[in-house]
Structure formats: C-alpha cells, structure tokens
C-alpha cells in the first residue's frame, strides 16, 4: 500500500539514507554474479581447442617443440583443473588477463588503451538518447492517442527493429562518397582542427546512429511508464483542482514516471555494449567493440575472454548502481 500526499509523494524529498544492510546485500549479490561470470569464463575456454603457449611463440607454426612444452609447464597447463582455476583467479585479482595471441601484448593493457574511446562514444550517445528519448516518451505517453504519440511510437518501433550497425552502414554508403563525414576512425593526424574538435567531428556519425536507436528504446520505455502514471488515482485530485494539463504532467506524473525509467536506463546497458560492437566495427572507431571484432580473427581467445569479463563487469557495476539509486530516488519504495 503506497502512501500518497496530494503532491504525489514527491514533496517528501529529504535526502534518504540507505540502510547498510541493503547496500551490503546488493553489493554481495553483484559480486556473486561476477563470480559466476568468472567461473563461466574459465570453464568455457577449457573446452576450446587452441594452445595458450602460442602467445609466447612468435611464429606459432615453427616453435621448437621443447620450448613449447616448457612454456606449457610454466603456464601450468598440465596441472589439475582446480589448481589452474586458482591460478586464474589469482591472476585476475592482480588484473592479469593473459597475453593476446594476435597482438602479443598483455590483454589488460590492450583493454585499458581502448576503454576510453568506447566510453566516450557510448556514453555520449546514451546521455543524449536518454535525455531526448525520455522527453519524447513522456510527451507521447501523456498525450496518449494523439498524433504525436502515434507517429513517435510507430517510428520508435521501426527504429527499435533495426540493428544499429545497419543504420551506420547505410549512412556510410550514402554519405561517405559526398565527403560529408570522415571515412573512419577517431582522429586524423593530419587534421588542422584542434584534437578535441577533430574527435568530435569523427564522433558525429557513430553517435547519431547509436543515439537514434537508443532514443527509440528509451522513448518506448518512458511512454509505457508514463501510461502507468497517467491513469493513476492520485492525479484525479490534481486534475479536479483544475490544474493545467502539462503542469499536472510536469509536477506530478513525470517525476514518478521518470524513476523507473532512470533505473531501467541502467538496466538496459547490456544493449549498449552490444550496440557498441557493431557500430564501432562499421565506423572503425578504435574502442573495445572494434577490438572484439578484431579478436574474432584467430580467434584470439585470451583477448575475447578478457573483453567478455570487462563487458560483464561493467554491466554488473551499472546494475549495482541502479539498485542503490532506486530507493534513493523513489520514495514509494523502501529499501528492505
């Protein structure tokens, strides 16, 4: 049973503290998920045919067999699996993710170098999309059945049905010949623009493509939670008092509709990761997504393992943030 005030419960906005037990519980759950991912990662790749010793022999086909045997002993490949597992976990604790077969460098270093471009690209697209998408969804949901609602929902469903990289591909085909957008990459060493502007220039097309699809998704989410609010009982009071329609929405319905959307924003980050892989590939953006595509050549198993771990850890972290934020933002929910 929710307690409501005439103002929809938004007025009680004293900063709330989270009970420690709740924080601990959620953190432990998140950690548990991470452990599960680590275990899956380990066992999955034991099944794979392929030789980790290859990372250390430059010309895989011509390595001296004695040396390969030595390397395998050093890597502990002959050991029973539980000992291998402990070695793997210990390495993880010190951020040692192995050595890439294709690039002959520590995986953690490669991932570290490429993390920033992905965060920049996906983060920018996400924030833009969340802002625009939620505004659009709120308006459409509030004006349920109106022309705006129908057009934007229809458009959103179409965009939502399109893979992001496909949009990027079509955009490139149409525009690249005209020279309107840069051919690829993040920076042009020859450019006369200051570096920040050069990067921004290279970001326009991929961010647009990502944002457009995310806008569709977030506007649909926001719309449906706004629909939930629209017909809620407490708003009848506000309307009965003769308040203007959009004030009703802005002051009362929107904040409550916003809350589940914000947390859903964090929870759908898994899609962000998937979108990044396709879009970075098509636009040659030097981030983790493109690194994944390159790692498929081979396949470069240690690199793929490390990337899988990184992506999963990122999403788990965001989910934890969402779990911790939700009770803070929504007074109707008690952190129990």
């Amino acid at each position: 049973m929710t307690t409501t005030t005439a103002g929809g419960g938004v007025r009680a906005r004293r900063p709330r503290a989270l009970p420690l037990r709740y924080v601990v519980r959620k953190t432990v759950t998140a950690f548990g998920t991470l452990v599960f991912v680590v275990i899956v990662n380990f066992f999955l790749f034991r099944v794979l045919p392929g030789d980790p010793a290859k990372a250390f022999s430059p010309r895989g086909r011509n390595a001296d067999p004695n040396r390969l045997a030595e390397i395998r002993r050093d890597l502990g490949l002959g050991l029973p699996w539980h000992e291998q597992f402990w070695a793997y976990v210990k390495n993880l604790a010190s951020f040692d993710l192995g050595v890439s077969w294709g690039q002959h460098a520590p995986v953690s270093r490669l991932i570290g170098e490429r993390l920033w471009p992905t965060v920049l690209l996906s983060g920018t697209a996400l924030l833009l999309a969340a802002g625009i998408g939620m505004w659009l969804g709120a308006r459409a949901g509030w004006r349920h059945g109106s022309r705006l609602d129908r057009v934007s929902s229809s458009g959103a469903v179409t965009l939502y049905s399109t893979p992001e990289w496909l949009l990027g591909l079509v955009l490139l085909i149409v525009l690249s010949d005209l020279g309107v957008i840069p051919a690829a990459g993040m920076q042009n060493p020859l450019s006369e623009l200051p570096p920040a502007l050069d990067i921004a220039w290279h970001m326009v097309a991929p961010v647009t493509v990502l944002a457009v699809v995310y806008i569709a998704e977030y506007s649909l989410i926001m719309r449906s939670s706004m629909l939930d609010e629209r017909y809620a009982d407490y708003l009848t009071t506000a309307r009965a008092k003769g308040l203007r329609d959009d004030l009703v929405m802005r002051r009362h319905a929107l904040p409550n509709a916003l809350l589940p959307s914000i947390t859903l924003f964090f929870l759908t980050l898994g899609f962000v990761v998937s979108g990044a892989i396709g879009v970075e590939t098509v636009f040659n953006w030097p981030g983790l997504g493109r690194l994944t595509y390159d790692a498929l050549r081979g396949p470069d198993v240690p690199l793929l393992q490390g990337l899988f771990l990184t992506f999963s850890a990122g999403v788990i972290l965001m989910n934890l943030v969402a779990d911790l934020l939700y009770p803070l933002l929504d007074p109707r929910v008690r952190a129990s």
Binding site: T33, V37, F45, L269, G270, F271, S274, P299, S312, V315
Partner: peptide, 23 residues
Amino acid sequence: RLTEWFLVIPYLPLAIVLATVFP
C-alpha cells in the same frame, strides 16, 4: 539466481564467446 545472472550478462559478448567455443 541463474535467471538473474543471465539477465545481467550482456548478450552479444556472451554470444560471441559461445560461438567461438563451438568445435
């Protein structure tokens, strides 16, 4: 628990990893 775990893990990296593991 299993459901929660699989919900969190991002789908495309998992699919990629599984696809490469197949003999």
